[in-house]
Amino acid sequence: MPFRLRVRAVLLARPGAVACGVTAGRLLGFEGLPRLADDEPVHLRLPVYGSRRQMEGTVSHFGSVAVGDLVELDGIPVTGPDRTLADLVLAGSREDAVAMIDAALRRRLVTGLDRVIAACVKRPGARRVASYWALADGRAESVLETHLRLLLHDAGVPPPCIQWPVTDGTGRVLARLDLAWPGAMLDVEADGGAVHELPSALHRDRERQNQLLDLGWRVRRVTWADVLRTPTKVVATVTGWLAAGP
């Protein structure tokens, strides 16, 4: 059964329920969520004093939701973007949470973080995530880019510039660098794979890299495999290049 249809069916069986958490995130178009599985349960927020019966194929969360934190999508009641982001941040790892914050800011699903932070106050996990907000940056263009930025931040070599524009002699922008150290002429690119492996993208990436090399930039391309399997090697490479200077 298609995901949205499955959510509708569940809500019809539980009057007063609201789609929340990862279910709300999918309906609202949040990025950085796990791949949707066929048997993924529907997450529901239910009134505290209602039935505690657990329905098969659902995960129940009990508690009230303010009227201002609710939206309706094609007749489906859903926690709004601010509340949904707060729920997901409280439930996720730091890397996944910051990636979702970055994406929500970039896509303007939320207009700022004040309401999101307020939705976390006095809830379990609020202290744990208190440091996440300052790490967020809506300029990040992919989940991998966020994970890579955090890896380098933790290693003490945070990139000073994100999406740094490089221009030619006429002022035309040749490229926007994912993570850049302009003083060291170092560009670290997050290559997520799906897009960069397309033939047209491969040609564009090579042409762009050649232009950067001609201008004296050093370019390091980092994949998911690099970040997940050999993070120390990624850090050592960036640290070594920075130490060597431009």
Rank of each mutant, 00 (worst) to 15 (best):
M100E: 09
A225D: 14
G216D: 06
G92S: 15
D114W: 04
A103T: 02
S60W: 02
A13Y: 03
G57E: 04
A140C: 14
R149M: 06
S142V: 12
L198D: 13
E40F: 07
L213Q: 11
C120I: 07
V188M: 05
W224N: 00
V65D: 08
A19F: 03
P246Q: 14
L212F: 10
P231T: 08
V227H: 03
E56Y: 09
L148E: 11
L177Y: 03
L144N: 01
V143L: 05
G63F: 02
R220S: 14
L109M: 13
Q163Y: 02
R206D: 09
G216H: 01
V219M: 09
H147V: 13
F3K: 02
K233Y: 13
A136P: 02
S51K: 09
R108P: 03
G75D: 12
I162Y: 04
G21N: 08
A9T: 10
P165F: 02
W217T: 07
T167G: 01
V166G: 02
P165A: 02
V18T: 08
G245F: 01
L135K: 00
F30H: 05
G25D: 06
V219Q: 08
R106T: 05
V143I: 09
L27T: 10
L144A: 10
G92C: 15
R107H: 11
R53T: 15
K233R: 15
G80I: 05
V42M: 01
D187S: 14
L135S: 01
P15K: 06
L33G: 10
Y49T: 15
L11K: 04
L213K: 05
W224F: 08
Y132C: 12
P15Y: 00
A236G: 06
A140I: 09
A225I: 08
L150D: 01
L186F: 00
I101C: 09
V234W: 06
A194N: 03
W181G: 06
A37S: 11
L28F: 02
T23Y: 03
P81D: 14
W133F: 12
H203N: 15
G75C: 12
V98C: 04
E197Q: 14
L228T: 14
N210S: 14
V48T: 15
P159V: 09
E31K: 10
G50P: 10
R127K: 11
A24L: 09
V235F: 03
D226Y: 06
A243F: 00
Y49C: 14
S131L: 12
A180R: 00
L85T: 05
D114G: 10
L228V: 02
L105R: 01
T23I: 10
V98H: 03
R206W: 00
E72A: 11
L12F: 07
K233S: 13
V188F: 03
R108E: 12
E40P: 00
L5R: 15
